[in-house]
Every structure is written in structure tokens, then in C-alpha cells.
Nucleic acid binder design. Structure first.
Lengths: 223, 223
DNA sequence: GTACATCAAATCGTATACGATCAGTGTGCG
DNA sequence: CGCACACTGATCGTATACGATTTGATGTAC
């Protein structure tokens, strides 16, 4: 039989649910019923079940035995914790990726940041967010340690899911961000040590986190 | 019917396989066959399958579609990557936990480190390793950020699994470790800032990592 | 009107069954 | 003699079926 199966059904289910959470189609608290999803996909519950458990392991859904799965609730604490985790790991990933940052890479990063600056002028926050994600991905993307890279990517993914699920909007610091990006690129261009890159990158993230904390009336992060 | 089920079968399967990997009963490369494990547990393959996928998500087993699962191979690269990840996260966790370190906590930590010093005299490396794990757990255990705490615990768990699976033994630095532990406790007692605690803790970890790298004839870690 | 027991519907958890896929082996042809 | 192909056994992937558990509703006693 001509199957030509590109992905297993559980993979398809995983992709589907995952994307719906990311886009906000399934908002936090939404009840994920195995049977319903299975019917929608035209398969049985078994692959769906597996997909849900994978999502649980990633922290995107909450699962209770004999009760079922719901899209994980996002309170400000969770947001804070994710941001804080990323504040620690992403700068380290970026520093470790420093070796792979050559002239070609640098000009690409500069160009992207310029486009972000343009978005700022055009007042296009959606594009700005997208490019910001892209920019950071460019920074940490060449990290040679796959564990760390994986952790960073998961962190960004969670943040994206949170933002999509309605949720309070974050005071953006867009203008400062662009400046800090340029400063970071200057540092890299000047062949700064990995430790310096890490410090600068962490400071950039700390600014964002602390401006959020301040807006929420909370103490700044200890580190 | 009186079921009184304390854990689901997939949970039991997870615990079983997980422990066997940790103790080294299943060594790296060992082929995990669903049917065999299911038979051993007296259940069907479905819960076993779920357990295996969970272990895959944690990186403990490697899974190939339509082929099966094997216990993840541990090469020196993997060990290095895990150590490096831990070198970044654990110090951060420790720094964040600083708030919870009061006088009672401190005396407990001191006592534990003294016991480690004693192990050194008695030349008892097994007990030393156990206490070293316990000591570090004491350091990061009060970290208020559950994500970070989880990451650190996973890291330690992976390292334990690697050590158990035979694998090359690491040059220990036991004596230096004990000294560095005391220095770290001095720092905490003197109410150092979280940033200082993080730096000291990272240096401690970097020493271990770099001594391993040196023994393996590799470059020291960039950060 | 409230509290508790009982029941039914929804949903999950697992067993069994069967089709799909892969690795290894043997056979035929060049 | 070597290579390619078909075949076989092992194992995985998923569908279906049924039992177990939870939850919410209904009814009854106080």
C-alpha cells in the first residue's frame, strides 16, 4: 500500500495541539478532551493521548489522572519564572555561540536590528515581536551545547504561548531594546570575551524582566 | 471492586525503567523492548510505551520510530554538555535560594561538609559522592523558581545515571571541593549578594568541569 | 432549605488485535 | 564471487473495546 507516511499520527496530534496553544486558539484552562481531538484528527485516542503527555512534559498542559488535560494556566508568577529562567540560560547560550559569530553573521544581525528600528517608526508591534524573536534566535542559535540550546528554545516557546493566550500585555521597552541590541553587537564586533557577552546579554534580559516586575508592583529579580 | 490503585501502570513502568537506568542495570545502548518490559510488569504494552516516551523527553533513552528505544549512549561530549548546563543553572538556583539560608540552615550545611571531610580521611568515595550530592541539594534546594529547580534536579539525575553506567571515572578534586564548599558557606554567612554567591558557585563547578576537560585533553569551557 | 446518598454520563486507563515497518537472511542472477 | 531483491521474524503504531474513575445532577431525609 502507498502509505508515504511523513509523520506518525501522534506527531500530527502533537503539532496540532501545540500550534493551537501557541496561537491562542486553545486558551489557558481550555479542556483538552482526548476523544474530541481524536475525532477531529480522524484517528483513535491512543496517539492523541501520547501527544498530550508530551505536551505535559513540556509544561504546556496540565494533566490530572482520570480527569483529563487542560491548557496550563498562566499566572504572572509563571511568566516571571519563565522569564527568569530564560534570563539565566539565554545569555549563557549566546556567550557559548560567540565562536560562530563571524563578519557575515554580524552584518545579518545588524540588518535585522535595523529592520526592527524601522518597525518602531512604523509602529508595527506584531512585526517587531516577530523580529525580536528572530534576532534573539540568531544570537543563541549557534550554541554548540544542544541541551542549553533546547532549554532556550523551550523557554521562548513558552513565552510565545503565554503572550498568545491573551494575558496582560507587557510594557515593551522596544526602543531601549533596539539600542541594547546594537550595543551587544558592538561588543561582539570588538571581540569581547564570552563572559562579557553573557553579562551584557543578561543585563538586557534583566531590564525587560525588571520593567515587568516594576509594572506589576513587585521586587526586582535577585540576580 | 477494591482497586486502591496508588499509581497508574504507566507510572509504575516509568519508575521501574527509570530506576534501572539510574542504577546502571540497563546500561547505555541496552535495547528496551516494549513487549518484554510489559510482560515483566504483567501489563500490556500501552502503558510501557507511554513511560518510554516520557523517558525519551527527559533524554534518558533514545527512540527511533518503528525500531525501538535504547538507553541513551553516554559519550564524553554528552557528559560535558550536561556538566556545562549544570554549571550555568545550579549557581543561579543557589543564588536565588540565598534568601532561605538562615543560621539553622548554615549549621546544617557546615556539619554536612565536615562529614565530607571525614569521608576524605576515611577514604570512602561512595559516601563522599552521596554527601556531595546532598550538599549541593541543600544549596539549591530552596530555590523559589520551580522551573530552575526542576532543571537542576534533572541535571544531577542525568549525571548520576551516567556515573552509574560504568563510564570513565572522573578525577575527583575531593579535597579542593570541600575547601571550596567552606569558602562558599563563608560567603553566605557574610551575607554576600546573590550575584557573588552565583559567581563563587559557578567557579566551583567550573573547576570540576575544567579539570575533567584537561584530563581528557580538551580546551577549558568558554564560560 | 440544606446536606447527604445515589445514580448516570463523561472521560480516562488499559488490554487485545491487527496492520505497518524495519533489520537481517537467503537465494538467484550477473 | 558479489550484488540485488524478496522473504521472514521481530517490533512498533494504532484501532477498537471495555472496565475504572470522576464529576455533576437528582432525589430524599432531616
Amino acid at each position: 500500500m502507498v502509505t508515504l507516511m511523513t509523520a506518525s499520527k501522534s506527531e500530527v496530534a502533537y503539532q496540532l495541539v501545540s500550534e493551537r496553544i501557541n496561537t491562542g486558539a486553545y486558551s489557558p484552562g481550555y479542556r483538552l478532551v482526548l476523544g474530541t481531538i481524536a475525532e477531529e484528527l480522524g484517528c483513535s485516542v491512543v496517539p492523541v493521548r501520547e501527544a498530550i503527555r508530551r505536551l505535559e512534559a513540556e509544561g504546556l498542559v496540565h494533566f490530572t489522572r482520570n480527569v483529563g488535560a487542560t491548557v496550563a494556566q498562566v499566572d504572572s508568577t509563571l511568566y516571571l519564572h519563565t522569564m527568569q529562567t530564560l534570563m539565566i540560560i539565554e545569555p549563557a547560550a549566546t556567550a557559548l555561540a560567540a565562536d560562530a559569530m563571524d563578519a557575515a553573521w554580524l552584518s545579518k544581525a545588524r540588518a535585522l536590528n535595523e529592520k526592527m528600528r524601522q518597525c518602531l517608526e512604523d509602529f508595527d508591534p506584531v512585526a517587531f515581536t516577530r523580529m525580536n524573536t528572530e534576532f534573539h534566535q540568531l544570537l543563541y542559535g549557534q550554541c554548540p551545547n544542544p541541551h542549553i540550546l533546547d532549554l532556550v528554545q523551550r523557554g521562548w516557546r513558552r513565552l510565545a504561548a503565554m503572550r498568545a493566550s491573551s494575558f496582560t500585555h507587557i510594557p515593551y521597552r522596544a526602543r531601549e531594546s533596539v539600542k541594547e541590541h546594537d550595543a551587544l553587537l558592538d561588543l561582539i564586533e570588538g571581540h569581547a570575551t564570552p563572559a562579557q557577552i553573557e553579562a551584557a546579554c543578561r543585563e538586557h534580559r534583566a531590564h525587560t524582566l525588571n520593567s515587568y516586575l516594576k509594572a506589576a508592583g513587585m521586587e526586582p529579580s535577585a540576580i
